[in-house]
């Protein structure tokens, strides 16, 4: 079943919060795959279970039923230390509110997961600078978060999410706090990371942002109700062809 390109695989995942009469079923029997080189958007109103799906995929929560596998490894079978390592080395998270550490510079924020993983400081800082250059803000490496705009901070967060060759990027409303043009630049970056081989999952309630994905999965009441695939464009001609 599992192909080597399936970076994230959820199989029959159900998540129930609470017990008995007050139990709330956030996800019900959801199966979901994100492959290498693919950006998948998950859309739904609040309460549809989209954030639950993302926290399960990131190993921040565990399913009541079903399995979550990242790069072929069932997260439920891992010991705490192994899971923590997996989160530092395989999975990158991008949040709406950036979640940068205010007391650290951009480069230090990005280097942090590598240093926690035991990389030597020098090596981690070099990798961080490279990652910052890749998201277009190499010149801001020594700035602190409060010296940067929202868009710049989100670029730092993306650099932190991909540093160290991580193959799964999970983004929870990453453009929520940004204006439309800055938001678009962030999506362009996420898209580029996926085109370069990462698997991306983008949770959003904005159709315009979801449209950057290869596939859009619609969630309602914890259930996948529909999916739009991708097909090459022939609905519109390329601009300039008629010249």
């Amino acid at each position: 079943m599992t192909r080597s390109t399936d970076v994230l695989q959820l199989t029959g995942v159900t998540r129930v919060h609470g017990e008995g009469a007050t139990a709330v079923r956030a996800l019900h029997s959801v199966s979901f795959i994100a492959s290498a080189g693919e950006l998948v958007a998950v859309m739904g109103p609040s309460g549809s279970g989209k954030s639950t799906l993302l926290t399960l995929a990131g190993g921040l929560d565990t399913p009541t039923e079903g399995t979550v596998a990242v790069e072929g490894r069932d997260l439920g079978s891992l010991r705490q230390a192994e899971l923590a390592r997996m989160r530092r080395t395989s999975i990158g998270y991008v949040f709406q509110d950036f979640n940068l550490i205010p007391a650290l510079t951009a480069a230090e924020n990005v280097a942090m997961p590598l240093e926690l993983d035991g990389a030597r400081t020098r090596k981690a800082r070099d990798a961080a600078r490279t990652a910052l250059e890749e998201v277009g803000i190499g010149d801001l490496a020594d700035r602190f978060p409060d010296q940067m705009s929202g868009g710049q901070q989100q670029r730092v967060a993306i650099a932190r999410a991909v540093v160290g060759e991580r193959r799964l990027i999970l983004a929870d409303e990453p453009t929520g706090a940004l204006d439309t043009e800055t938001g678009e630049e962030i999506l362009r970056l996420l898209r580029a990371r996926c085109d370069a081989g990462a698997a991306g999952v983008l949770v959003t309630h904005e159709a315009r942002h979801a449209a950057w994905a290869d596939r859009v999965v619609f969630l309602r009441d914890g259930v996948v109700v529909d999916e739009t695939g991708s097909s090459p464009v022939d609905a519109l001609l390329e601009p300039g062809l008629t010249r």
Binding site: R188, A211, W212, F218, V225, V233, L236, E238, P239
Partner: peptide, 22 residues
């Protein structure tokens, strides 16, 4: 839902054109 999927597919096409465009 059928309409939403169809419109989303069109939106994906437009976005792809934007990405590939100048």
């Amino acid at each position: 839902q059928q309409q939403r999927s169809a419109t989303m597919a069109a939106l994906q096409d437009y976005t792809r054109l934007k990405r590939s465009g100048r």
